[in-house]
Design a protein around this nucleic acid. Structure first.
Length: 967
RNA sequence: GCGAGGGUUGCCCAGCCAGGUCAAAGGCGCCAGACUUAAGAUCUGGUAACGAAGGUUUUCGUGGGUUCGAAUCCCACCCCUCGCACCA
């Protein structure tokens, strides 16, 4: 064994040995199986630290389960469908400076190579080779016989099969949906195509159709319920209005809207024709009919109305909308004769329709007064609006004047009412951005209705219900995220699943479209089972629907499957048996960014396609990785690649660091100087192992289970070790890799230090044997190397060796308690030595007198029976004639003991109840240790009759806390 | 706005669900000692404050509450991060 830790050498050596012996290529057998998957990487770049974290977690779980004796399958594929790879090829071809810079500098691709990646195919070829190399170099125990990319012909056949099923079972429907649209490009815009307004949402307004002489005056609102409180409409005399013809199912309608609104309506699914422009003056001072209440209300002028927002006509609800109230108040007593209005707007009575606990009948008035707002042009009007809307939304209920909607909460009314309005044709939906959106080309974007689009019908309540059932029977790790899954299932709407651009599979029932790339990566875990055979001896064209139905769903017959595919029956049966052996997925582990999308779809599609016995068993979620506190970005940098990490620090160091720096869902920050420290830790471990291997013979390792006459400290260590083994196994099961490493490495290291400090040595070969197995899932190469050098297992891989198992027989309560006594006593001595200024030469320890221990144990057992009480305890004690001697001091001590015990955890109490400790003996055995540690002479006296006690210190002792006197 | 997660001792980061062994694990940093001609590396110990006796005091975002007892449970508030879709 080399004295120096050479990660590069060790790692190459063991990776190639694993490959030679093909130890990670499992086949079905009589063992219990474990199928673990992580999301395959998307190949528009080199694998980075984020992949490293998720994949390493997966590998550690795989290795742990494998060492626990399960038959583990951990496969990997590559995702390439969608637009980014096509976009990247384009950018490289055009020699986009930023792309060239980022990919050469951050991804570490030489420019000459980079320049050849001018087509999506070349990119896929290059990055898939690179990704596999990276994953091999970090030691993942992946079965590479099953790799594939999502543009393989066979994969496309598989996806077609999936979509045929979804279609046949009604999970795919046709419909229209609003998208961000650039009128100049005549294309939808995606977020990275946007100049301004990246955060913009599409908001759904309701148009309320007010009527006037056969014309419709549509008013856009987010609060359709306020239609009950409309007192007038607002028209801005400064903006341009038009009259348009709107095609409707039965009759065409004539609408009056702003010019801007007309432009927007042109992009909706409505059929629109311009009739004429209308002077704004002609729209003011007329009486329109509220379609809901049939009341007639007047139209009035207002400057706050914007032509580019909504329809350019606004309904006024002054009781509940500060702007409306302000605009109305601004008109009080003013001369409106220019508009042909001779009434004073003061006659208009506010209509209250929402009950809000914190406000009067007119919340808008309250808010305007509260903020002390002067006019509709005051900037505070915005704040007042927010306040009123928020309060009304959260705590408002509808009043009696809303008829059948009375008593409904404001927060619940919108969907109900909108539906009713649409049914009666007095309302319509209208979409608008939450903020202006401008395309990269400089053109303002609009909301466009895309018609005849294919949708995955995720909003289907039955489908949602089944997914909810699926989640309920799964393990979600960590458990706290279960609620998140339920929320997101609730929230999920229909999702367009067909695209025009990018790589992918055509929709089998509408070949003009490509299947969207999140939808084609939902049940591919089952494809791993097929992939092994496809990579060997099956052609894509043989993967027929009939064959897939038979293998994956057990539909149809072997006969039919064989005929349709042209495959041998035995082969088909073999694939089918493999599938039913490996499926379902036992765990899928993934970054938390995939919860609201991929993981959700993964569940939706599984329940849609497969029976309950094939539903996934568990999902584990992990957090992100940042780089020196900065967010990583594939396309902009900074980026730490898996290659770079492995190259600079080694595979084992990288694995250990990324798993130990943060727990589960917490984000991890990669810090180079901390990684250096992790490397030192492993060097320390290596040299510890090296020392032990040098100092012991291979026989010492072979006989590791045969120790007789163990010393106290050996028993203590064995007991302690069981706790570490237990905690490591539990933590790994819960995917708490940080906690697992804390126990299997750091804390165990400290235990070993204490063991050696206390003079232990003979268990060291045994310790190393257990320790290295405990660490093997995390740092497999290093552990194989040490394991190999112990020369006690005839060349078996540690990767295939039994993982340490908790052994309750080795738990030794007395040894643990004794060691606690020793270390606490040492702490007490240190504390005293630190405080007193004299130079100490001798320390006297006085163990607890028998009677005090008796008091303590009596109190403990009374506590156990649930009747511990100072009075009762003293009474009980005094029954004992021995105790009467101490009659005067017993009550005081009893009181102390009772409060001490009341403050103990149940665990500690049961621990103490089971113990049987001889203090004097334990302390005597430890005197050498105490002397070595303190540099003083140490004497231990029995507290019952100390030979020497000049300052009467012996009386200070309590059970497990000896009295101390220092000279 | 809606949803989720988080604020801990010089720093990173555990603990919180199952209240008491919690002045609070582990790592880093720092300090001291050993080794060394010395430095570095390595190893060992220490690391809230105060204390001439093992104690005391203050501390886990802020303010309340429940409890014999709260980092942990409840309520309110402040601050930070992420997601909100047709993009992987």
């Amino acid at each position: 064994m080399n004295a120096e830790y050479l990660p590069d050498f060790i790692e190459r050596k063991w990776i190639s040995k694993w490959e030679q012996e093909a130890i990670f290529e499992p086949e079905p057998n009589e063992q219990e199986k474990y199928f673990i998957t992580v999301p395959y990487p998307y190949l528009n770049g080199i694998l980075h630290a984020g992949h490293t974290r998720t994949f390493t977690i997966g590998d550690v779980i795989a290795r742990h389960k494998r060492m626990q004796g399960l038959n583990v399958l951990f496969p990997m594929g590559f995702h390439v469908t969608g637009t980014p790879i096509v976009g990247l090829a384009e950018l490289i071809k055009n020699r986009d400076p930023q792309t060239i810079e980022v990919y050469s500098k951050h991804h570490g691709i030489p420019e000459s190579k980079l320049h050849t990646l001018e087509s999506p195919e070349k990119i896929v070829d290059f990055f898939s080779v690179e990704a596999e190399k990276s994953m091999r170099s970090i030691g993942y125990s992946i079965d590479w016989r099953r790799k594939f990319t999502t543009t393989d012909d066979a994969y496309k056949k598989f996806i077609e099969w999936q979509f045929n099923h979804l279609y046949e079972n009604g999970y795919i429907v046709k419909g229209s949906h609003p998208v961000k649209w650039c009128p100049a490009d005549d294309n939808p815009v995606e977020d990275h195509d946007i100049l301004h307004g990246e955060g913009a949402n599409i908001v759904d307004y309701t148009l309320i159709k007010f009527e006037y002489e056969g014309c419709i005056f549509p008013c856009a609102t987010l609060r359709p319920e306020t239609t009950f409180g409309v007192t007038n409409l607002w028209v801005n005399p400064e903006i341009e209005y038009v009259k348009i013809k709107v095609a409707n199912d039965e009759n065409d309608e004539t609408w009056v809207v702003s010019k801007d609104a007309y432009d927007k309506l042109l992009h909706t699914d409505k059929d629109i024709q311009l009739i004429e422009t209308v002077p704004s003056f002609s729209l003011i001072g007329i009486k329109v009919t509220n379609p809901l209440t049939r009341e007639k209300v007047i139209t009035l002028p207002a400057s706050f109305v914007r032509g580019d927002n909504g329809s350019g006509i606004v309904m006024s609800v002054p009781a509940h909308a500060p702007f409306d109230y302000l605009a109305l108040r601004d008109l009080y007593d003013s001369d409106l004769s220019a508009y042909g209005i001779d009434e004073n707007p003061r006659y208009i009575k506010l209509i209250s329709l929402i009950d809000v606990p914190e406000f009067s009948d007119y919340p808008a008035v309250d808010a305007v007064n509260q903020f002390n707002i002067n006019s509709q042009n005051d900037s505070l009007a915005e704040d007042a609006t927010k306040l009123v809307y928020k309060k009304e939304y959260h705590s408002g209920t509808l009043k009696q004047n809303t008829g059948k909607y009375a008593n409904i909460k404001v927060s619940k009314i919108k969907d109900i009412l909108t539906k009713d309005l649409i049914d009666q044709n007095i309302g319509e939906l209208f979409y608008e951005f939450s903020e202006p959106v401008v395309c990269r080309c400089g053109t303002p974007c609009v909301v466009k209705m895309v018609k005849g689009q294919w949708f995955l019908h995720y909003s289907n309540p039955g489908w949602k219900r089944t997914v909810t059932e699926c989640v309920d029977q799964m393990d979600i790790i960590p458990e706290e995220l279960r609620v998140e899954f339920h929320n997101k299932i609730e929230w999920l709407k229909d999702k367009a699943c067909a695209r025009k651009k990018g790589l992918g599979t055509k929709l089998p029932f509408d070949k003009a479209w490509l299947i969207e790339s999140l939808a084609d990566s939902t049940i591919y875990m089952s494809y791993y089972i097929l992939a092994k055979f496809l990579n060997e001896d099956i052609g894509a064209e043989q993967l027929t629907n009939t064959l897939l139905d038979y293998i994956l769903l057990d539909i149809g017959s072997l006969e039919a499957a064989s005929i349709s595919s042209g495959l041998e029956r035995e082969l088909i049966e073999k694939i089918k048996t493999d599938f039913s052996y490996w499926y379902p997925v036992d765990i899928r582990t993934s970054g938390k960014d995939l919860v609201p999308n991929h993981l959700l779809f993964f569940l939706f599609h599984h329940v849609a396609i497969f029976g309950r016995d094939k539903w996934p068993k568990s999902i584990a979620i992990n957090g992100f990785v940042s780089l020196e506190g900065k967010k990583m970005s594939k396309s902009k940098g900074p980026l730490l690649t898996m290659n770079e990490a492995v190259h600079l620090y080694g595979a084992d160091v990288t694995r250990m660091y990324i798993l130990s720096s943060a727990e589960q869902t917490q984000d991890a920050d990669w810090k180079n100087d901390k990684v250096e420290n992790a490397k030192k830790q492993l060097e320390r471990f290596y040299s510890f192992a090296h020392q032990i291997i040098k100092s012991f013979s291979s026989n010492d390792f072979k006989n590791r289970h045969e120790y007789n006459d163990l010393d106290h400290i050996d028993k203590w260590f064995l007991s302690q070790l069981q706790q570490r083994i237990y905690q490591t196994n539990i933590s790994l099961k819960q995917v708490k890799t940080r906690n697992a490493l804390q126990n299997s490495f750091f804390i165990l290291f400290n235990d070993v230090k204490w063991y050696q400090r206390r003079g232990g040595s003979r268990l060291l070969p045994y310790i190393l044997d257990v320790w290295v197995r405990l660490m093997a899932p995390f740092t497999p190469h290093l552990c194989e190397e040490i394991w190999d050098n112990m020369e006690h297992t005839n060349g078996n891989f540690i990767s295939l060796t039994q993982y340490p198992i908790y052994n309750s027989e080795l738990i030794d309560i007395d040894a643990q308690l004794a060691e606690e006594l020793v270390s606490k006593t040492l702490e007490d001595m240190d504390e005293i030595l630190k405080v007193i200024k004299l130079k100490p030469t001798t320390i006297y320890l006085y163990s607890t007198p028998k009677w005090k221990k008796y008091v303590f144990m009596t109190a403990l057992s009374m506590n156990d029976q649930g009747n511990l009480d100072v009075g009762l305890l003293i009474k009980e004690l005094m029954k004992e004639s021995e105790m009467k001697k101490y009659g005067k001091i017993v009550p005081k001590y009893a009181q102390k003991v009772v409060s001490e015990i009341k403050g103990m955890s149940d665990e500690k109490i049961s621990f103490l109840l089971k113990s049987n400790l001889n203090e004097t003996e334990v302390l005597n055995l430890a005197t050498d240790f105490f002397e070595k540690e303190t540099g003083c002479q140490v004497y231990v006296y029995n507290g019952d009759s100390p030979e020497y006690d000049p300052k009467n210190k012996a009386g200070n002792s309590t059970y497990l806390k000896p009295a101390i006197y220092v000279e």
